[in-house]
Simulated assay, not measured.
Amino acid sequence: MLGVIRVFTTADDAIVAAHGQLIASLFGLETRSYCIPDQPLGIYDAASHQQAVPKIVAAAKKAAEDGAKAVFISCAADPGVQECRQVLSIPVIGAGSAAAGIGLAMGPRVGVLNLTGSTPPAIAGLLGKHLAAEAAPQGVRNTTDLLNQAGMSAAIEAANILARSADVIVLACTGYSTIGLAKVLRSIVGVPIVDAVEAGGTVAFYCLARRMA
């Protein structure tokens, strides 16, 4: 079983389970999803990141106690990944580093589509000199803005700009997975698109398959 940690608070079980269900549908893995308490806005700055880490560790420990053979932290900033690895004996996968790794495997020039701001260190640090370009949709502040035509058009425009100087584009926000942006871009943009949740599922499948071998 793969434990999927969502780094925000909600009482909506369907929202909590969405990324785990995506991984289950693609890779046939059993998943169980967890969210952290008292952070309805999730992680949005350094302070909220710091507050979230011990909660993520607690959720990962709970997943391991429930029988998880690996844990996936569904956030492109990889919050708590290193801390979880220090206390758990099972694989701990971060969405950001998983996406960066698959991006590197697909081409030497990696473009990164952020939601806002600059590329998360978990991704930029792994890509190093292979980070060919980065961009974010103009006028977009959160994934909700992508649900209207203006926001989606801005994301497509930013991806098309990245494609001019990149062999592959990494989506550096797991919220993009929630709205299915990768599927839209794959039908329009002329380079491969790496979805961060799909990337985490790919690594999880490899980890769990090796444990069963």
Results as ranks from 00 to 15, higher is better:
Ala213Pro: 02
Gly20Lys: 01
Gly190Cys: 14
Glu65Ala: 14
Ala135Gly: 10
Gly117Tyr: 08
Ala172Phe: 15
Tyr206Thr: 09
Asn148Tyr: 02
Ile93His: 03
Val194Phe: 11
Ser74Gly: 12
Ile23Trp: 07
Ala18Gln: 15
Pro54Gln: 01
Val203Pro: 01
Gly101Asp: 11
Ala98Gly: 03
Ile102Ser: 03
Ala163Lys: 05
Val53Gln: 00
Ala63His: 13
Ser89Asp: 15
Ala199Gln: 04
Ala100Ser: 12
Gln39Asn: 11
Ala182Glu: 08
Ile23Phe: 06
Ile156Phe: 02
Gly28Gln: 10
Met152Lys: 15
Val16Tyr: 08
Gly200Ala: 02
Ser89Ile: 01
Phe72Ile: 01
Phe8Leu: 08
Pro91Glu: 09
Ala64Gln: 06
Cys35Gln: 09
Ser97Met: 04
Leu22Pro: 00
Ala213Trp: 07
Gly28Phe: 09
Leu131Pro: 11
Pro120Asn: 09
Ile188Cys: 01
Arg186Asn: 11
Gln82Leu: 12
Leu181Val: 04
Ile188Gly: 00
Ser25Thr: 08
Ala163Trp: 04
Ala158Pro: 07
Ala159Lys: 00
Ala204Val: 06
Arg109Gly: 00
Ala150Gln: 14
Asp45Trp: 07
Val189Gln: 04
Ala150Leu: 13
Gln51Pro: 00
Gly80Thr: 05
Ala196Trp: 00
Arg32Asn: 06
Pro121Arg: 13
Thr144Ala: 15
Val92Glu: 10
Gln86Lys: 14
Ala63Leu: 05
Leu208Val: 08
Glu198Arg: 12
Arg141Glu: 14
Gln39Pro: 03
Arg32Glu: 11
Gly101Lys: 13
Ala99Met: 03
Thr174Met: 02
Val189Leu: 13
Val87Met: 07
Ile23Leu: 04
Lys183Trp: 10
Phe205Val: 01
Ile73Phe: 02
Thr202Arg: 12
Asn142Phe: 06
Val184Gly: 09
Phe72Gly: 02
Arg32Ile: 11
Leu115Trp: 04
Lys69Arg: 14
Cys35Ala: 08
Asp12Ile: 12
Ala105Met: 06
Val110Trp: 03
His49Trp: 12
Ala47Met: 15
Leu181Gln: 06
Gly128Pro: 05
Arg85Asp: 00
Arg109Pro: 01
Gly190Glu: 15
Leu2Trp: 11
Val57Thr: 08
Gly117Gln: 03
Lys61Tyr: 01
Pro137Asn: 07
Val16Ile: 15
Ala133Tyr: 10
Ser177Ala: 09
Ala95Gln: 06
Leu22Gly: 01
Thr119Leu: 07
Thr119Ala: 02
Ala105Phe: 05
Thr9Phe: 04
Glu83Arg: 08
Gly125Lys: 10
Ile36Thr: 12
Gly20Ala: 08
Glu134Lys: 14
Met106Pro: 06
Ala135Ser: 15
Asp167Gln: 03
Leu88Cys: 08
Gln138Leu: 13
Thr9Cys: 02
Ser177Lys: 13
Val53Ala: 06
Leu146Met: 15
Gln39Glu: 12
Thr9Gly: 01
